[in-house]
Write a protein that binds this DNA or RNA. Structure first.
Lengths: 368, 368
DNA sequence: CTACTTTACTTAAACGGTTCAGAAAAATGT
DNA sequence: ACATTTTTCTGAACCGTTTAAGTAAAGTAG
C-alpha cells in the first residue's frame, strides 16, 4: 500500500496496466477489459479498477503498446514532397490536407504529417519510422526515394497526382488536358508570343530556362504533363514549342514566380502572355510585371493553375485552371480508408478540371 | 515494364526481423544492430543482412515495436479545438501549424494532428490514443475535457493561448492589452456606437447576443480576455460596456461573422464600428455590410484580430491586431522539444502584438 | 439434484523489436 | 607465447498491452 502511494508521487514514471492490476488484485487481462470490453466485467469491479487507475495516475492503456499488439495504429501518414512547413504555404496543399483530414475524421483516424525527402538523404528514414497504417503520397516526383520507401513498406497506399505505380490506387486530374485548355485559351485570344513558368520538373530542380531534354526528363508528373499539354495546344497553332521559353522554378513559391518573370520578360520580343503551372507562380509573375510597369492583362496576360481561393480575390482576378483540391484529399483519404479495411478500392480516380477565365487574360495589344 | 512486375507487392505477411535473422543465420540482436548500430557488426555481415532483408521484403524495424521498446515515438501531437478540417480553414491556425512543423523538423520529429473534443464526447479518447511524446495544445477552452486528458497523460506539454495550468509552459500574447489598443483606436477616431463580434466564449457556444454573465464565464481565454480588453478601453471613454452589444459566433468562420453583422447592424441606432475578435469574423462583417449597402469604412469601421496575410490584401485592407502566428508555433514547438529533452524550459513566453491601422477604419460619419 | 449454459475472471502466449551483460574469437602488446 | 584489449556476435529480459483459450462459480432447465 505505502509503496504504491509512493509510486504515485514519483515524478516521471507513469503507472502501467500491470501495476493497476496488482493494486486492485486482479489480472492484467481484467484491467485491459475494463478499458476495452466493459461487458466482460462486473460493473462493480470495473468501477473499482477505474478508480484505482485514477488514484495511481494511470492514463489508460499505452497507445504504442496497444498498436503493437493490435497490429494497427489508427494513423494515416501523409507524405508531402517539400518540407512540411512549405505544405502550409501553398493554399492548394492546405486544401488538400483539409480534404484528407476530413476523410480521416470520418474513419476515426489521425493524421501524421511525414516530411518527404527534400535534398537531404536522411529523411527517407522518416517514412520507415512513421507508425502508420497507410500512406497518402501527395505530389511527389516519381523518382523520389521516399516514394520508393513507401512502396517498400508494403502498407496500403494511395498516390496523388502521380504516375500509376504497381497497382496502387491513384487520385489525380488530367493535367495534360487541363493545361492544353489553358494554352488554347491564350491562342484563341490571339497571343503568339508566350512564355511558360513551371515549378520543379524533377527532384533536383535547376532554376532557370530549360530545354527540351530536361523537359522530357521530368519526373514530377504534374509539371511534365502540363508542359506537354501546353505544347499540344501551341504547336498546332503554329507556335513551335521549341521556341517557347520555359523557366523552371526551384520551388513553388511566389518569389520564384517573380524571378521567372524577371527572366522571361526581359528580352525585346517579350511574351504577351505567360502560362504558369501554379497560381502561386502566377501571382509572382503578376507582381513582377506590375513592378516592371506592365499592366495585367493590358500588356501581359497571365494564366495560373490550381484555382486556389486567392485566385478569385486577386487583383486582377486570375484566369486559371480549377481543380478540386479538397475533394482530391477527401477522395484520396477515403480510398485509403477502404484499402485499410481490406476492400479493393478502384484503381484510379480522375477528377474533373475546368478553365476559369477571369480578369488576368485579354487579347494582346496590337503592337503599333 | 518488367520491373513493375517484380516490385508488385506480394500479398501476405511482411517479414519480421526474426525471420531475417533466421535466414541469415544470426541472432535477432545482430539484425537489429545492422539497422541501428552499424559499428557493432563487421561490414561484411551487415551487407549480408541487408541483402537478405531486401530479398525477403523486410521493410526495416517496425516503428511501433521500436517505439514501445525505446519508450519514445518521435512524434509530437498537436491538439486543436475544432475539427481538424477547420484547422486548415483558419489562416492563423495554418500559420501556427507551419511554425510548429518547422520546430518539429528541426528536431527530427513528426507531427500528429489530434482532433480536440468538439461537441462529441467520444473524441476525448483521441488524446489517449495518440502515440506521441508530447503535446502542443492550441487555443482550447480551458474546461475542455481533451485538455484535461492531455494533462492526465503526463507527457511534456506546451499550452498555447491559454490560461496557465499546473506549471505547464505557455506561449501566448497579451490578448487583453491588444484588444484594448484596438478599441482605443476606434474611440480615438470618434466612434461612440460600437458593436462586438466574438468567436466562441466557451465550449458550448450559444450563437447570438450575450450578456455580462456569459461573458464573464468565458472559458476560452482569448475571447474572454479580448472582451475585457475592449471593455477596459470603452468604459473609461464613457461608453458603458453593458450597453455594448456582444454577439457570440458559434464558430470562427466568415459566415458566422456575416450572421453577427446581420444582427448587430439591424437596429436603428446601428453601430458605426465593429470590433471582431478575429479577422475571419471581420471579413464576414465587411461582406455583410457591403451587401447591406454600407460602405467600409465610410458607413462602418471594422477592426479585426490576428492580421492574417489576407488582411493586408483585403478590400479595403483590414485594420487589425497583428500577432506572430508562425512564431508562436515555432516557439511552442521549440519549448516542447526542450521539454522532451528533459530540459526545464521557461514557464511563459508572451509574444508581442501591435495594432495595424489600415483602410477599414475611419472616423464615423457626422450624422446630419 | 443433475446437466448444461452463462458469467466473471485468469493464464499465458503473442506483438516485433532493443539493449545490456556477457562469451568467443581475433587482434594487440610485450 | 601469454596477458590483455578489441571486435563481433549471442542470450535473454523487457517494453505495455491484447486476446484466445481455459477454469471456477453461479444461474437455469428439467
Amino acid at each position: 500500500m505505502a509503496a504504491n502511494f509512493e509510486q504515485r508521487r514519483e515524478p516521471g514514471r507513469r503507472a502501467t496496466l500491470k501495476e493497476v492490476a496488482a493494486e486492485v488484485g486482479v489480472s492484467p487481462a481484467t484491467v485491459s477489459n475494463a478499458y476495452n470490453r466493459p461487458d466482460q466485467l462486473s460493473s462493480g469491479l470495473r468501477e473499482r479498477v477505474l478508480e484505482v487507475a485514477r488514484r495511481l495516475g494511470y492514463p489508460g492503456p499505452d497507445p504504442t503498446a496497444r498498436s503493437l499488439r493490435r497490429g494497427r495504429s489508427g494513423v494515416i501518414g501523409v507524405l508531402y514532397a517539400d518540407r512540411l512547413s512549405y505544405a502550409f504555404e501553398d493554399p492548394a496543399a492546405v486544401l488538400f490536407l483539409r480534404g484528407i483530414s476530413e476523410a480521416a475524421e470520418e474513419a476515426g483516424l489521425q493524421l501524421l504529417l511525414v516530411t518527404g525527402s527534400l535534398r537531404d538523404e536522411s529523411d527517407v528514414e522518416a517514412v520507415g519510422k512513421a507508425a502508420v497504417d497507410g500512406f497518402v503520397v501527395y505530389s511527389m516526383p516519381e523518382d523520389d526515394p521516399s516514394v520508393h520507401a513507401v512502396i517498400e513498406r508494403r502498407v496500403p497506399t494511395v498516390l496523388v497526382d502521380q504516375p500509376e505505380g504497381m497497382g496502387t490506387p491513384l487520385v489525380g486530374i488530367d493535367d495534360r488536358g487541363a493545361a492544353r485548355a489553358a494554352a488554347e485559351h491564350l491562342v484563341s485570344l490571339g497571343h503568339r508570343r508566350i512564355g511558360v513558368v513551371s515549378f520543379e520538373l524533377a527532384r533536383e530542380p535547376v532554376g532557370g530556362l530549360v530545354g527540351a531534354d530536361r523537359q522530357s526528363a521530368a519526373t514530377f508528373l504534374a509539371s511534365g504533363q502540363r508542359l506537354r499539354g501546353y505544347a499540344e495546344a501551341l504547336d498546332p497553332a503554329g507556335i513551335p514549342w521549341e521556341r517557347v521559353p520555359v523557366y523552371e522554378c526551384a520551388e513553388n513559391v511566389l518569389e520564384e514566380g517573380k524571378a521567372a518573370a524577371g527572366v522571361l520578360l526581359a528580352p525585346d520580343d517579350r511574351p504577351t502572355a505567360i502560362l504558369a503551372t501554379s497560381d502561386l507562380l502566377a501571382f509572382g509573375v503578376t507582381e513582377a510585371a506590375e513592378e516592371m510597369g506592365l499592366a495585367v492583362p493590358g500588356d501581359l496576360s497571365v494564366v495560373g493553375f490550381d484555382d486556389v481561393p486567392e485566385a478569385a480575390r486577386a487583383n486582377p482576378p486570375l484566369t486559371t485552371v480549377h481543380q478540386p483540391h479538397m475533394e482530391k484529399g477527401l477522395k484520396a483519404g477515403r480510398l485509403l480508408v477502404s484499402g485499410l479495411r481490406g476492400e479493393d478500392p478502384p484503381r484510379t480516380e480522375i477528377l474533373p478540371t475546368r478553365l476559369v477565365v477571369r480578369g488576368s487574360t485579354a487579347p494582346p495589344k496590337t503592337d503599333a
